[in-house]
Design a protein around this nucleic acid. Structure first.
Length: 608
DNA sequence: CTGAAGAGCGCCCTCTGCTGGACCGAT
DNA sequence: AATCGGTCCAGCAGAGGGCGCTCTTCAG
């Protein structure tokens, strides 16, 4: 299928399109509009290198006497069949609202009657015709039955003006309106590439090549309205709703001169369609009711809060929220709801567990279609909601909102016990549970007796200590091999209290290697620590330090521990302590009979 | 014209798991 | 005293459940 951009270029002639794009195969965050502004030459290239014809149009596209590019009358060109050249660039600085319609035809069905079949291009079942005799030239994009479906594209994609991707199934009538309107210089300044999806930005280029680079924005916002397009997952109402509304206003103004409602034959059925959006209906009453959605008229006012509503039903539902009236009560629980739909959905969630929306890629199913749509994003990776402060993009609005807290520094959740503040409610909840609850749940490791406060930390514990190591680790003290760190650590502890460092020259054994090294000096006679003052050598650094302080440091004042009973001084605190029998602490004794050397000696001395 | 039923969007919530800094005991 | 490693803890994001509300469709 030829891209619709080709069609529009075909239709508009020297018109520069800037459009929102959609990648149907791999949806991407649509807040970043991928469709870059196309250059004039690029547009020509995209159109198939001359396969597309161009039609020049004068002030009014409906003018049958308008000249083609080559100066021949338009009607003549049309009569000639084949290629029609359009060039809607009458006066620089004018806006256009193109009226396009797509009509699904059944196989073998001809174009609608009363339409001059100006077959601009026909490819893959899509071609464009121009309505004859209409007050406004209304080219129709005609889609033969099944064309859209054959693309296997998601339903509800009203139009995606990107090469090769656009579907019309589900959209019975589409209009692209190009309004002639004086352009303001300000519009040029406001021109942005970041137009929302579904917005077609059309630049009017001057007829001469030189002026194309400084083109004037003539067709600013030819909005493709489509209620169905809301189904498209790549359409962000979150971000573009306001812009869409502005576009609606613009188009509303544009269409002011036209009738609000028109009807058109589709086969033998009468189709009523809204001029302000793609809404269609077979019933006039439905259209009339729909038209109220485009108006601000809300005649039904709540007497409690003065809020106005379009319908009595809406008002009643609203008033019920004031009064707490919930007429629809669940028969299986205490829940009650304002509407029957809420009750039905509640029953599916809580009681019937019916989940009609099933994911084709996994076993997930959901009660609501929107939940399935959200779930599918976890398969596609689509992240439509972009943070404007960093590169983060979210799959739904709530996560983006939650993320924005990281920029504001806000901590909305406060612990009611210690007033500590948290960014997420879940974090606060676990804080209260761990810090302020009596029966704190702890998670026991299934492989050892370790208890860990948080499940997530148990996961870390399992990964670090109990995961299988393909390469076995050898114990540093023996030949044992272990594939699990925890087992190795436990094994090492068995070496902890054994005197595993043995002297090879005597029976000496010790727990620490450094002690063995010092001991071995008794065999070798090595005394590596020499005093710088008297050249006396020592086997241990500590002995040298004591020696230096005692004999060479004039500032050194040895600590004196005084016996609280007799006042005698001792060089070690333990000696003073054990001098008092009632304070005697055997564990501090190093095996030497300090008591006999302590107060007893003191008594001897004091007994003098 | 009205109301039920259903669809759709939005919002808020919980559960879950990962990450990195802080803390603390063992070495 | 320094280092290492395990646990504690808060921050943060992924995924999904549930409900409020509005709109469309359709039958009575």
């Amino acid at each position: 299928m030829r891209s619709l951009s080709s069609f529009l270029c075909c239709l508009l002639g020297q018109v520069h399109l800037v459009m929102a794009s959609q990648d149907a195969a791999l949806p991407k965050p649509f807040t970043k509009i991928k469709g870059a502004e196309r250059t004039w030459d690029k547009a020509r290239e995209d159109d198939g290198g001359g396969k597309i014809s161009w039609v020049k149009e004068r002030n009014s596209m409906c003018d049958p006497d308008a000249e083609g590019l080559n100066g021949a009358p338009l009607a003549k060109q049309l009569e000639g069949g084949g290629n029609l050249e359009l060039s809607p660039s009458p006066v620089q600085g004018e806006k256009h609202l193109i009226m396009l319609q797509t009509v699904h035809l059944k196989e073998g069905e001809d174009e609608p009657q009363g339409v001059s079949q100006l077959n601009i291009q026909q490819q893959s079942g899509v071609h464009m015709v121009v309505q004859q005799g209409a007050s406004v030239l209304q080219p129709l994009v005609v889609v033969q039955q099944g064309v859209g479906a054959q693309q296997n594209l998601p339903t509800g994609v009203a139009i995606s003006i990107q090469d090769g991707v656009y579907t019309f199934h589900d959209v019975e009538v589409m209009q692209i309106n190009v309004l002639q309107e004086k352009v303001q210089a300000k519009d040029e300044e406001n021109l942005s590439l970041d137009k929302p999806p579904g917005m077609i930005l059309i630049k009017q280029l001057p007829p001469n090549e030189e002026g194309r680079e400084k083109d004037i924005f003539t067709v600013e916002k030819a909005k493709i309205f489509s209620c169905k397009a809301k189904d498209d997952m790549s359409v962000s109402h979150y971000e573009h709703k306001e812009q869409e509304e502005q576009a609606v206003i613009k188009n509303t103004e544009a269409l002011e001169a036209q009738k609000n409602t028109r009807h058109r034959k589709k086969g033998k059925k009468m189709i009523f369609h809204c001029d302000l959006c793609a809404f269609t209906s077979l019933r006039m009453s439905s259209l009339n009711r729909h038209m109220k959605t485009h108006s601000d008229e809300k005649p039904h006012m709540c007497h409690l809060c003065l809020k106005a509503f379009r319908t009595v039903t809406l008002l009643r539902n609203h008033v019920n929220t004031h009064t707490g009236t919930r007429p629809y009560k669940c028969s299986d629980c205490e829940m009650a709801f304002v509407t029957s739909g809420e009750l039905a959905r509640h029953r599916r969630y809580k009681h019937t567990l019916e989940k009609p929306f099933k994911c084709s890629m996994c076993k997930y199913s959901s009660v609501e279609a929107s939940k399935l749509k959200r779930h599918i994003r976890s398969h596609t990776g689509e992240r439509p909601y972009n943070c404007y402060l960093c590169s983060y993009a979210s799959k739904d609005t709530y996560k983006l909102k939650r993320h924005m807290v990281t920029h504001s520094g806000e901590k909305p959740y406060e612990c009611y016990v210690c007033q500590a503040r948290f960014t997420q409610s879940g974090t606060m909840k676990i804080h209260i549970l761990q810090k302020h609850s009596e029966n704190v749940p702890r998670y026991q490791c299934p492989h050892c007796n370790t208890f860990i406060a948080r499940k997530s930390d148990l996961g870390v514990h399992l990964r670090n200590l109990h995961s299988y190591l393909t390469v076995a680790t050898k114990c540093r003290y023996c030949e044992a091999l272990f594939h699990e760190r925890y087992a190795l650590i436990q094994h090492k502890k068995t070496h902890r209290n054994e005197k595993r460092f043995k002297c090879d020259q005597c029976s000496y054994a010790c727990k620490q290697e450094r002690h063995l090294i010092v001991h071995k000096r008794t065999h070798t006679g090595e005394k590596p620590f020499a005093c710088v003052c008297c050249s006396k050598c020592f086997r241990q650094k500590q002995l040298l330090t004591v020696h230096f302080r005692k004999y060479h440091d004039s500032n050194f004042k040895p600590m004196v521990y005084e016996c609280p009973k007799c006042g005698k001084g001792y060089s070690r605190w333990v000696s003073a302590l054990i001098s008092i029998p009632e304070l005697h602490q055997p564990q501090r004794s190093s095996g030497i009979d300090m008591a006999s050397r302590g107060h007893r000696s003191c008594a001897v001395r004091t007994g003098e």
